[in-house]
Design a protein around this nucleic acid. Structure first.
Lengths: 381, 381
DNA sequence: CTGAAAGCGCTTACAG
DNA sequence: CTGAAAGCGCTTACAG
């Protein structure tokens, strides 16, 4: 009912009711606060920004005035005055992974749009899945005078100290796509991978319509947190709700397209026919290549296939009917949100209310027409 | 390749490459422009804001200087100076529809957060599906001094003139959830309902795993554009890819829960057993009530059921396994975006790059835990 | 520890 | 048609 307080009803047009926010149009300013507190402008400013060198007595008076007047500082004016520049950095895995190509692309686009608002961004690439490299990089960041950084993280306590140091310098740190240790970042922008895996299981289960079946799973590596979580979610739901489906142990692929190609081809030829594939990792070019080859035989019964991340080749496979579902984390949405969070944090504002990120489920019929021409991962050989 | 231009590479840490945006940190200011053009500050301002009363010669000089220097005005400073207040309004259908309760709730939340930035919002309720009421309301809006309005629209040329008048006064108008006539609004925030319907069809088709079946559809009214589009999308995919499934003509429900309850109950008892339900409209409390009743018989074979909009009761039914899929438009995301668009438009900025809105697909396993306690539509009787 | 003053980039009367 | 000046709400030297 709290929102009722915000409303004042009035008649606008016939059947219509209008709710108007109260008259907060011009709140109190710093000078109002200073006056009320009986101190100077500068002193009021000092206590508000904790610049120190203020008598406790003055601090108290100002705090009281702020409280009483409900003062809230005008961030835009502050930034104007300070000639604020937001120096942001994104730490993302190096390489040609199609998903991170999308991330990169969106970062650059957004940065371009935001340059007008004095935000500056650097993309820093770290070799993937290496705690050592990531730690080194975070250490090198310290003292580099960033205002905020978004990091595609790893779970390792080796990262804790460097992250603590970074934050101690006043740098806002958030996890992106793959989280950092919880207590060492201010926010996480990414999907819940356990939920993603569970969703994959539900759809795969549905596709069997009560029949029995055998499912082959694939993963890059089980110590990659997102892969492990997806797989776990998948197995949980299968065990609970689809006992007639048998989930085989994952084939570990290191996300290598060539390896996936061969593994998939072999799986398709196995005697006991498989009814579904689920790859929690990357390297889908290989998996798709093998399925596409098999699809040339018109009599072939293709397994129900679920993969992650919508990129050029997975989209095409969806349209061709060679795979059935792509579970995607929207790179564009994530990047948007990372910027919004970082800016709010840097401004010292509270995080804007943001809808939780849901994995997007793509089937043949809802893939966006405008999918960028990703530089696709090439399938060697 | 355009983005390469934005980058300058430098070594940051070992394997790492950094891409830094150019030195746009402090672009030219209005006074730079005025100097370059050889006119006064005030004159430069006049031409930039088209305030008139400027010699053509001055206009030319200023335009040239702007071009040459790449001047772009600092919106924050302008707003500060002008003591800008954003007066926004949302026109949404009246009533207790659970989906619009969510919309309302998010509008209020966001407004609350944005009051600090001097945005003021009014929610205006119009009786649903009535072109006349909507037209009247838009007319009454004119002259009310709004900066921007978001309207849950209808398709009717009766709306065109009022909308044109409104925009002629400098009011930014966008369509929300259901679009307005294309040329009479600046943007549309909502999902593609044809795609939503196609997606429903794909999932329903998948759930039959090649078996034949009979599908009962429900719609509020076929002259509601979103309903019609969903149904059309659904039928298109069914016809093309699932010829073994028979789609019955829709039962028209006026979104009335009681009616839906009875219609669903009857359908569940029909001689030829139905294998799936798809309701493109609202009133799901009724549909779910009937299914839940049927589910009491443990031998009952429930049809595969797809409905729209995740609200308290549809979420519960999903968790109970009484329905299978909910296709949702994220009210929170839509509201967020409506605000962002409106503010950009009011500021005369270009629309921020925004990811297209995808219908979110919920199954039992990915419903958010934190779903608000919607005031649920009550099922009378 | 405190205050008066200039300035951030713009807009808005006001006086020519 | 044009310009000088004050002011938006804040921060930052600078001088006590």
């Amino acid at each position: 009912m709290t929102y009722i307080k915000l409303l004042s009803y009035r008649n606008l047009c016939g059947v219509i009711r209008a709710a108007a926010k109260g008259e907060i149009m011009s709140g109190p300013t710093l000078s109002d606060v200073a006056n009320a507190a009986g101190v100077s402008y500068a002193t009021a400013d000092r206590v508000l920004n904790n610049r120190g060198n203020v008598a406790q007595k003055s601090i108290n008076k100002v705090r009281a005035a702020v409280e009483r007047l409900g003062y809230v500082r005008n961030v835009a004016a502050a930034n104007l005055s300070r000639k604020r520049v937001y120096r942001l950095a994104f730490l993302i895995p190096t390489g040609t992974n199609a998903f991170f190509n999308r991330i990169r692309k969106h970062i650059l686009e957004t940065a371009n749009h935001l340059s007008v608002e004095n935000v500056t961004v650097e993309i820093i690439e770290v070799s993937a899945f290496s705690v050592d490299a990531l730690r080194d990089c975070i250490e090198k960041l310290t003292g580099n005078d960033y205002d905020g950084v978004a990091i595609v993280g790893l779970q390792s306590d080796q990262l804790e100290q460097p992250l603590a140091n970074l934050q101690a310098q006043g740098v806002a740190v958030i996890g992106l796509v793959s989280d950092l240790p919880r207590d060492y970042r201010r926010a996480y922008v990414g999907i819940d991978n356990n939920v993603a895996g569970r969703t994959a299981a539900r759809l795969t289960g549905m596709s069997h319509a009560g029949r029995s079946g055998v499912i082959q799973t694939f993963a890059g590596a089980l110590d990659a947190r997102d892969h492990a979580e997806r797989l776990r979610g998948f197995c949980e739901v299968m065990a609970a709700d689809f006992p007639q489906l048998c989930v085989l142990d994952p084939i570990l692929t290191k996300d290598d397209p060539s390896f996936l190609f061969q593994a998939t081809r072999d799986a398709l030829r196995s005697d006991a026919p498989l009814t579904a594939f689920y790859n929690v990792g990357a390297g889908n070019v290989g998996l798709i290549g093998a399925i596409t080859a098999a699809a040339k035989d018109p009599a072939a019964q293709l397994p129900f296939t679920v993969v992650h991340e919508l990129v050029a080749h997975s989209k095409q496979a969806l349209l061709d009917g060679h795979i059935d579902v792509v579970i995607d984390q929207r790179a564009d949405v994530e990047v948007n949100r990372a910027f919004a969070n970082l800016r709010a944090l840097v401004d010292g504002r509270s995080l804007p209310p943001m809808p939780s990120l849901m994995p997007t489920i793509y089937v043949r019929d809802n893939v966006p027409a405008d999918l960028l021409n990703d530089k696709t991962e090439a399938l060697p050989k």
